[in-house]
């Protein structure tokens, strides 16, 4: 009856995230119909059917408090969609997700910013979206500014910031909300070297405090360093789940395999091309030869005839 609340009752009290048999369908039309004119034209033509596409199939995993999990897989495998499902931005078609504690989604830094507003206003707006009252934010404001090193720029509109500055501010806000679960999507490479080190330190500090991480990354070394578990999604299915080194090894093997296969295919294509060219050249040479021979034979015949 009170569904929204029940999402917070865990099966195992040690877990902070429980994902059970999650499936996700997206409906896609061939071309996007986003206006009435197009809609009616297609309605008349009868071309309105949509394609159902399964983006995630039967994904299950769980995460204990203080543990971190890395989501790996190729582009378009559904990792980011899974993060959105965990942070409750979209609802899964089937299956359940239970989470315990404050979730801070770090999906694409600075996506929630208003570029007309100043840095300060953006801090307050983003803080409110993450669930903090103005009073709490007044306490945090100083910390956020200090961490992002943007004291001088807080009162100018965000449109005058550089992209690195925007990312820094975004990271500072997101990291300062004291979450129990942090969802990170490919953002650990923002700012200059100095700031990157600062981020890494902060993340280490949070890990020591017992914050759980869900990290989407294509940097396998980073995943090995930060996580205890890994989930490998390929073509919307789970290909591997368990200890980070084991899964990462298999993933790297798979990647190397794919690379090898691609190279082999390339080489095979090259060889074939070469062979074809060779065969052609040979055929041409033979033709020429035969033509020359023919000429010779005709010349001989003419000479013979003259002799007679």
């Amino acid at each position: 009856m009170f569904k929204s609340h029940k999402k917070h009752i865990m099966k195992n009290s040690e877990n902070v995230i429980e994902v059970e048999n999650v499936c996700m369908d997206f409906y896609r039309r061939d071309e996007k119909v986003d206006n009435l004119k197009e809609f009616f034209v297609r309605l008349v033509k009868g071309k309105l059917e949509r394609k159902k596409e399964r983006i995630l199939e039967n994904i299950s995993f769980e995460l204990k408090k203080g543990e971190s999990i890395g989501l790996i897989g190729h582009n378009g495998a559904g990792k980011s969609t899974l993060l959105k499902i965990i942070s409750n931005i979209i609802e899964p078609t089937e299956g359940t997700v239970r989470t315990h504690g404050v979730i801070a989604p770090l999906l694409n830094l600075g996506a929630g910013f208003d570029y007309e507003a100043t840095g300060k206003e953006n801090v307050y707006l983003n803080g409110a979206i993450l669930g903090y009252s103005k009073k709490e934010l007044e306490h945090k404001y100083k910390e956020i500014v200090e961490f992002s090193e943007l004291e001088k720029h807080m009162n100018i509109p965000l449109k005058n910031y550089s992209s690195g500055m925007v990312a820094r501010l975004g990271f500072a806000i997101a990291i300062d909300v004291e979450p129990q679960i942090l969802l990170v999507d490919e953002i650990l490479s923002v700012g200059d070297e100095n700031f990157r080190r600062k981020c890494a330190d902060k993340i280490d500090e949070l890990r020591r405090k017992g914050v759980s991480f869900v990290i989407v990354s294509h940097n396998i070394d980073q995943v090995r360093k930060l996580c205890q578990k890994a989930l490998w999604i390929e073509n919307s299915h789970v290909r591997g789940y368990g200890d980070v080194n084991e899964v990462c090894d298999r993933y790297e093997e798979y990647c190397a395999d794919i690379k090898k296969k691609a190279e082999q295919a390339k080489r095979a294509a090259e060889v074939e091309k070469f062979a074809k060219a060779e065969a052609e050249a040979e055929a041409k040479a033979e033709e020429l030869l035969s033509a020359v021979l023919n000429e010779n034979s005709t010349a001989e015949a003419v000479a013979e005839a003259e002799n007679k």
Partner: peptide, 9 residues
Amino acid sequence: RGLLTKNKM
């Protein structure tokens, strides 16, 4: 959409 697709609100 920038806010809505990246945050729970």
